[in-house]
Design a protein around this nucleic acid. Structure first.
Length: 817
DNA sequence: GCTTAGGATTAG
């Protein structure tokens, strides 16, 4: 089958309505790179954002900012030990200058931090800040500095000073760089620790120990309040000692990646158990771990902001490593890649997560790869595209190598928090064969198809963990996966640059177009023109061009798919499932009681499974009117339902309307969430244009209940799905950036409502884009397209009008070869 | 309020 772009002379959208050409985007092509600071530096687990790259959408919980102090204001007292201080920090030379103006930013410090900064930090010093919030700088106009400022207040705020130390002072592991870190408001305390050999432990003592890890489980949830890391360690005394570390927070647990890692624990309690000594963490416990391979550099792994580390520690680690290397302590299992997996075996897999999707309450499907190809036939699974988190459409190379992993039970809970792009180690993964009866299995011939299962439980250290980006274990993997052509479109810079515009918060997307373009038809009578001629022309014109597609943005459909209001023309993002789950969960906690006389209600008490998941009441309400019309299955109202409940119910009833009780009456939830569900489809309402009130539906006998009818009855203005792509057209040496928006449905010959709900429709779009812009092919191999373009003006923030271009009245058609 | 786990395969 061959696809060809032609111009369609007739055009009418599915619903017979037209969205106007209203786009107001600026593309920032100079988004600075993401720089991860050196492991030895503070905030190394965070993404370092260059100062020019800061904006109000910066996720400060994941970011650190580094800069040189170029101005330090006076400490201003606000009374009662409260202070404020303003400083300016400047991006250092090392980062590429992408904008000369935004290299310096105001930092406003509050409270004790302001006071400490005033006393401890001088101009010219380099600082790293974390836990900040980003605000709009009210003085940007006046001081010509960065349009944002950094606000440092509260417990999360932290500021580190990078400072040279005299050689005699105990240093951080960054000693080789001749620099150390001091955290403002905490001075380093120098004290000696003594470590007890493992064969000298006596019960009932609190000790510090070093050891080589000979067994470990990743932290797992206990029946109590904490996670437990269960491990066994040994040292030169050859004594093996079991340890149980209980911490509520996962980040406080020892970072153990593989057998042979070295662990140092401070303040562990010895305890007699079963004739031997066990170790248990106790008050003031701290832990640091190290890679166990003698050839690797000694880099402490810890999430502690301050920890003790001296040259003696480095020596102890090296001695333990050398000793362990000459012992028969650890099994000598070779690293298994997907290419060397044996059916029915258990192995540890180091891989990259491509995407994930929930299967049911106890199972998550992970799509991963390690750059090698599994030689065995693999079992296939299918999931709804709408529940996939991550790039739904993989390049051919990637999807050839990617495998599915089913993660069950306790591990599913951890897997829910994994982010696509993360590097993972999955311990005790089971390569199973035989037919699967999990809900997402596509069936198939089954018997000798391989499937990867991470079973529930923690036997044999079964578990999954994220490896840090600087882990030596992933460098080779990273090199391999990054060598694939499509890679730079998926997880790194390009996407974050695109997200600058495509992820712009909805309120800034309100369209401010001067007026809608006139309706014109291309018709084949229009003569083809060059891109240069299009650019030289004014707005409100229609052109017929012949060009190639050089590139397009965003690369992922889930980034291009939007919701928009046909009335007020606001464009907004589609909320992700994590957000929706949270919203529904919150609402389900306080369902209240509905006593509307026009509803028939029935409540079910669903048992919980612990203090963090208490029981809840799910209520289903039927409209008496619909019941009388024998349409009781057409629409039900539910209260106390989680997102999962709603999806389940959506399989049995036509329309599900989640409601909460407000003064004894049914009322809708916040319109941030879908107000209506039908099968896989979700319907949203416009916050600005809806005047919601839940009242009895009046249906005539022949009237069909559909989303439009329900929305109207509720006073809701239905949002429509839209698809927004920016295409770079090429014609010889000339290029032109154009949008595809209004006529996206015509272009792809697909309903965007379907695209939001099913994989098949999504595949149609990705196949089309792969055909128009074949990944990894030269421009000579890109097809030539006949396109209609319209020109129109958009009023920018600066008040000036800009001419924009949009593809219109063009559809992809398939023609026989 | 101060437990939880204390290695040793799921059975999808």
């Amino acid at each position: 089958m061959r696809m060809r772009i032609t111009t369609a002379c007739q055009f009418e959208t599915k619903r017979g309505k037209r969205a106007s050409l209203l786009l107001n985007y600026k593309l920032c092509t100079t988004m600075p790179g993401r720089v991860v600071v050196d492991q030895a530096n503070p905030g190394s687990h965070l993404t370092r954002i260059p100062i020019p790259g800061i904006n109000t959408a910066t996720d400060s919980s994941q970011a650190s900012i580094r800069g040189k102090v170029i101005q330090k204001g006076p400490l201003v007292s606000l009374g009662d030990e409260d202070f404020v201080l303003k400083a300016v920090i400047e991006e250092e030379e090392s980062v590429q200058r992408s904008s000369s103006r935004n290299m310096s930013i105001n930092v406003i410090l509050f409270g004790g931090l302001a006071k400490d900064f005033s006393e401890a930090v001088s101009r010219g010093e380099v600082v790293v800040v974390t836990g900040f919030t980003v605000g709009k700088s009210p003085t940007a106009h006046k001081d010509q500095l960065h349009p944002c400022n950094l606000l440092l207040s509260g417990d999360d705020a932290c500021l580190y000073v990078l400072r040279s130390l005299p050689p005699s002072v105990s240093r951080s592991p960054a000693a080789s760089k001749r620099s150390s870190t001091s955290k403002v408001s905490k001075s380093a305390k120098v004290s000696k620790y003594t470590y007890v050999p493992l064969n000298e432990l006596k019960p009932g003592a609190v000790v510090n120990v070093y050891g080589v890890v000979v067994f470990f489980k990743q932290p797992y949830k206990t029946r109590g309040t904490d996670y437990c890391s269960s491990l066994k360690i040994t040292d030169q005394s050859n004594q093996k000692v079991g340890c149980n570390i209980f911490c509520e927070r996962l980040e406080d647990h020892p970072k153990i990646f593989q057998l042979g890692d070295i662990i140092r624990m401070h303040r562990v309690k010895t305890q007699a158990f079963g004739g031997s000594i066990n170790l248990l963490n106790t008050f003031g416990f701290s832990v640091v771990t190290f890679d166990g391979r003698p050839e690797s550099t000694v880099v402490p792994r810890t999430s502690s902001k301050s920890f003790h580390f001296e040259p003696e520690d480095k020596q102890t680690v090296e001695e333990l490593r050398t000793w362990a290397a000459n012992q028969d302590l650890l099994p000598t299992t070779p690293r298994i890649h997907l290419s060397s997996v044996q059916p029915q075996s258990y192995f540890d897999l180091t891989c990259q997560l491509l995407w994930k999707a929930p299967v049911d309450g106890t199972c998550i499907l992970l799509k991963v790869w390690d750059g090698t190809r599994c030689v065995h036939p693999l079992q296939d699974f299918s999931v709804e595209a709408s529940v996939i988190e991550g790039p739904f459409s993989l390049s051919r190379e990637r999807s050839d190598l990617a495998v599915n992993i089913l993660v069950f039970d306790n591990h599913a809970e951890i897997a829910r928090q994994l982010k696509p792009g993360a590097y993972l180690r999955i311990y005790n993964l089971h390569a199973t064969t035989g037919t699967s009866s999990v809900p997402c299995s596509s069936g198939g011939s089954g018997q000798n198809q391989l499937a990867f299962h991470l079973h529930g439980g923690t036997s044999y250290g079964r578990g999954v963990r994220v490896l840090p980006d600087d882990s030596p274990d992933i460098q080779e993997l990273r090199r391999v996966v990054e060598s694939y052509p499509d890679d730079d479109n998926d997880f790194n810079l390009n996407d974050s640059a695109i997200m600058e515009i495509w992820g712009t918060p909805p309120e800034t997307l309100v369209c401010v177009c001067s007026h809608s373009p006139p309706e014109r038809r291309c018709g084949h009578a229009l003569q083809q023109v060059t891109l240069a001629e299009v650019k030289q022309s004014g707005p409100d014109q229609l052109f017929h061009v012949n060009a190639q597609l050089k590139s397009y943005q965003p690369r992922h459909l889930y980034q291009a798919l939007k919701l928009h209001c046909p009335k007020c023309r606001v464009i907004q993002e589609i909320p992700d499932d994590d957000f929706l789950s949270e919203t529904f969960l919150e609402a389900s906690k306080a369902p209240g009681h509905i006593a509307d006389p026009w509803l028939l209600s029935k409540s079910i008490l669903l048992p919980g499974d612990g203090p963090k998941s208490p029981g809840r009441t799910l209520s289903i309400h039927l409209s008496k009117e619909l019941f009388g019309e024998s349409k009781s299955k057409d629409l039900i109202y539910v209260t106390g339902a989680t997102l999962e409940d709603v999806c389940q119910l959506a399989a049995a009833y036509q329309y599900i309307l989640p409601v909460t009780a407000s003064g004894g009456s049914a009322s809708l939830m916040d319109l941030s969430a879908p107000f209506l569900f039908r099968g896989n489809k979700r319907y949203y309402g416009c916050k600005q244009c809806s005047q919601v009130s839940v009242k009895e539906l009046k249906v005539g006998g022949s009237e069909e209940i559909n989303e439009e009818f329900i929305a109207e009855a509720l006073g809701i203005k239905l949002l429509q799905y839209g698809l927004l792509l920016k295409l770079e057209l090429q014609q010889g040496r000339d290029t032109l950036e154009v949008f595809l928006w209004r006529d996206a449905e015509t272009f792809f010959q697909v309903s965007l409502e379907d695209v939001a709900a099913n994989q098949e429709a999504q595949n149609k779009i990705s196949k089309t884009m792969d055909f128009l812009c074949p990944p990894g092919r030269s421009m000579a191999e890109h097809p030539w397209l006949d396109l209609c373009l319209t020109t129109y003006t958009v009023k920018e923030d600066d008040g000036l009008k800009h001419v924009c271009y949009q593809v219109c009245q063009t559809s992809t058609t398939t023609t026989p070869p």
